[in-house]
Design a protein around this nucleic acid. Structure first.
Lengths: 256, 256
DNA sequence: ACAGTCCGTTTGTCCGACAATTTTGAATAG
DNA sequence: CTATTCAAAATTGTCGGACAAACGGACTGT
């Protein structure tokens, strides 16, 4: 019989208050990025808490990327890198049993947009990076077609790198963020597909077509080739008779 | 003249080793999600370090979402929520001076896809949620057109909620992840646009059209209305004479 | 200008302690 | 036997102090 709803009482531990306070100082610019954090004892004195408590607060800052420690030196204030956070999010997606279908749908949306933007913004340096990547992959494909032993992990790594270079070239950090789960989760499904269907050259060809579009600055064509390339993943996955809606297994992706 | 490359020497502090060890136990399933973390003293004994050191390691786990504390109770092992990590990433984007153009380009890609998927998967409960949201917004628009005092924050919040409901209804967690910066950064630019151009009803109308498409399960139309809706943001932003390529300012977005 | 040395500061780690709260387990009532 | 109650044990959050190792900076001698 309660006739009044009390707002939930929150008794945050002191170390979290320390975290909040310092986070605020950083976000509002009173503590400048790049400068060293004040000494622990000084902070303890200012906050009126013990040094151990301050240290626990600093650990929170450290894990959230707002503070970087470099050896035994004074920790420095830094800006968290969004791609690090994105890869944590990808790991979380795996733990939440994300499905192949979800990843595929997202890749069909994000990657073509990245290819399009990359075609518009690509420069010599980007093309050079892509060339190196393509040559490495071609070497590997030729070796495999000669009956070589497949090094799946290395192949998938080259595949990922190709798409990462594209995302970098596209020059859109929000799209790069959206694209992170695609490289770290979707493309590694190749580890399941490739050995069963031997589609190595098909992947290489797709990359090469996209590369040509970039060189020709043909954004529309780049988009459409990438679209086809992503859809190939689904078709191949279906041929393996795995369910699109079954949760992906971290182990079989070689993600630990 | 160095003929041998030494691998970089890494001297991680003990608390980080503790973090790594426990993280591993969780990811490999030896520590089950939902169960309480072993007592600090027990961990300290097992790892052969002091309890303070263990505690610092636990703070790292806490911030990365692998451990959840609930009051003074035993911290429990949990799965990090990807949306929390995404909102950290959004904050990082702001600190990295992300531009309106980047957010807009991403929104033009992600939001129409979400609308399309939402139209395919929407159910009664989702429509009900959207109805409540729309009614609240209509009330506010009518009040504003009657000369009422604009509560920008509340309006933007309703706008965000509409898009968040859509993302939830779409049922794709990877797209939801990609869409997070759109709600937490892009839509709040309305705080800049709305008071200058008074486009309240225009926003409401767009939402209503999208809602109708969902009710009719017309995915293609939902996509196209959302596309138009997002592009409206750019057109409005350009009319304010702000540069699309200038970094967004956290303060003016009401993000602290 | 440069290398080496000394010294105060700071971080990383350990030890011990205690209040507040939670968990456990045993005693008790129904 | 089950449910409740209650005291004891365990656990977390915080404090205080201590010390080795590494760092930073000033000083010195060349």
């Amino acid at each position: 019989m309660q006739d009044h709803e009390f707002s939930r009482i929150e008794r945050a531990p002191a170390y979290r208050l320390v975290y909040n306070a310092i986070e605020r100082e950083i976000l509002t610019g009173r503590l400048r990025v790049g400068s060293p954090l004040p000494a622990e004892l000084q902070l303890a004195e200012q906050f009126g808490v013990n040094r151990s408590t301050v240290r626990e607060g600093i650990r929170l800052l450290e894990q959230s990327g707002l503070v970087e420690r470099d050896g035994g030196k004074r920790p420095r204030i830094s800006v968290p890198h969004y791609l690090d956070l994105a890869s944590s999010a990808s790991r979380a997606l795996i733990l939440h049993s994300v499905t192949f279908r979800e990843l595929w749908e997202a890749s069909m949306v994000v990657e073509p947009a990245i290819a399009e933007s990359a075609a518009q913004h690509v420069n010599e340096a980007g093309l050079a990076e892509l060339t190196i990547n393509l040559e490495a992959m071609e070497t590997m494909v030729v070796r495999l077609e000669g009956g070589g032993d497949p090094d799946l992990e290395a192949f998938v790594q080259l595949d990922r790198t190709f798409h990462e270079i594209l995302a970098k070239v596209a020059g859109n950090r929000v799209l790069a963020l959206a694209h992170e789960p695609v490289t770290s989760l979707f493309i590694p499904t190749g580890q399941i597909i490739l050995p069963r269907l031997k589609t190595y050259r098909r992947v290489f060809d797709a990359h090469h077509h996209i590369f040509d579009c970039l060189k020709a600055k043909d954004a529309a064509k780049a988009r459409s080739w990438m679209h086809k390339h992503m859809d190939d993943f689904r078709r191949a996955y279906e041929l393996t008779e795995l369910s699109l809606d079954a949760p992906l297994d971290a182990v079989s992706l070689g993600i630990s």
